[in-house]
Amino acid sequence: MWRIFHKLGSPKWFFGIAARFMPWLLAGGLLLLMAGIIWGLAFAPEDYLQGNSYRIIFIHVPSAFMAQSVYIMMACAAVVTLVWRMKLADVFVKAVAPVGLVLTFLALFTGAVWGKPTWGTWWIWDARLTSMLILLFLYGGVIALDRAINDEKSAARAVAVLVLVGVVNIPIIKYSVEWWNTLHQPATFKLTEKPSMPAEMWVPLLLSVLGLYLIFGWLACVRMQAEILVRERRTRWVKTFVTTGKV
């Protein structure tokens, strides 16, 4: 098991594997996301209370879910960076932080636009919305800290510590709607219970969540490849890849 783990740390090996998986991730992701969105927009029934404005859920929930998942993945990578000093883990954190930033922004933006017709306000300082805004700043902080430190190794450690410190925000986001009273409603999906919406609403939602997950996988591969090329440009395998296209 440890051997696979260390092999995974080899940038060259990852570069080749990523190149093989990427077309499938992109095709599957686009297919699922499009299917979920078209189903949700045009075919799912309207909600008895909110009418058609609830259709924003088919992009709001995937963005918010991915924004938090990406941060959890970054935190796992940060532990690997700090304990094993594996370069690939640091490459991952740097490559996906901007993706997380965009996803968090999308979750906040779609939430605000959804809030106006349903709640009657774009923004309110309740625990869920505020903790999500903190997540946006955490992503911004990670990107800024990484750019501020020139030395690659010290940047990797500083960023890993910041990511780990910020991970306490994730359970706060998740449970904010249960621990405190908020304007935001509790989660529709729980691991232990049936979702509190009918199948013709949650199936398209599940499709778009899975689709966005795969697209994230593809984005992570593309961006990690770019970061690996920058770091390993002096090695022989990068030279053969650039000149012949083979890894």
Partner: peptide
């Protein structure tokens, strides 16, 4: 039109 919610829904999808 989405029963008047069109601008909200389409703005979200557009930005996304």
């Amino acid at each position: 039109a989405m029963d008047g919610h069109g601008p909200y829904v389409w703005a979200c999808y557009g930005v996304f």
